[in-house]
Amino acid sequence: MAIKKIGLQTVKFQNPPSIISTYTIVGPKEGEGPLKDYFDYILEDDVWGQASFEKAEAKIQEETIKAAITNGNLTNQDIDYLLAGDLLNQIISSTYTARQLSIPYYGLYGACSTMTESLSLGAMLIDGGFADKVVCATSSHFSSAERQFRFPLEYGSQRNFSAQWTVTGAGATILSSTGDGPYITYATTGKIVDKGIKDATNMGAAMAPAAIDTLITHFNDTGFSPNDYDLIISGDLGRVGKAIVLDLMKKEGYDLSNLFTDCGVEIFDSEKQDTHAGGSGCACAAVVFNGYIYKEMKKGNFKRVLLMATGALHSTTINQQGESIPGIAHAITIDINKD
């Protein structure tokens, strides 16, 4: 009996897991952006003494998780599960991080939706009675993503205005069966939605339909209306995707204009930092949530937030074979009260 499931795709937690600690590390560019004061540690250089960008990304994720554990006055032995994922092939950043931590590990692949994918599953593990403490983490790195998905760094090409900038950084959240909040109260799991966009320089448009699908399903399943939230924030739709969501949600009868924004839009000053449509990557939602949103909730400035990380689940290989880009969006309700 799925007693905690409500509606079509949503889980309502009976004993909502509490967020007891977070940590964020970001690269130098993110550390110059509008949210810089919310990040716990800003790197001076994004290689961090490592031999490659991939190794640097793994180190960033590892140090982020270690610091989140230390911040929560815990040790690795206190953690029941590590749920982590990233963008690189075979999620190497997360696995090579897990190699250093000796915590039971589930590797996840949700592309840039990984933060809410891991938080949804972590909350389910705890509310299901399978764990007391879970670490949810993800990372991305501009340079490692660039070489896997796009061009070499020194190649002289122009970026489209719809193109986004992969965030360098990592975010980690520790969920606990006990604690004084904020709490994860609902999780709406997204379906793959693919409206046939093939342009890998326009991820926002590829993911927006999934975001709209998850939002509408979430409101239907929970009975919430947009105004029940202080903030509804997507992961990395960027400017193009954000505009599409606002526009098409309005046509569906939901006015989100003063409530809705996107982590990718908030993390950079696109005029000054030349990031075109905004930030992207797993770390985009991870550092904005674990930095900005969590800290503002702790201060009481947001009481209830809907966080919806969005992912484009394609690869360059299948894209070159002519396939379109499947999108996904997982939403979680984070509330400073338990009910």
Binding site: F161, S162, K195, I197, A205, I216, I244
Partner: peptide, 21 residues
């Protein structure tokens, strides 16, 4: 959203892309 075909959505999304200078 559901009543929008893939083709309609692609044309719609194309219009949302900022034009190059």
């Amino acid at each position: 959203m559901e009543n929008m075909t893939n083709k309609e959505y692609q044309q719609y999304a194309e219009k949302k892309i900022p034009k190059p200078t």
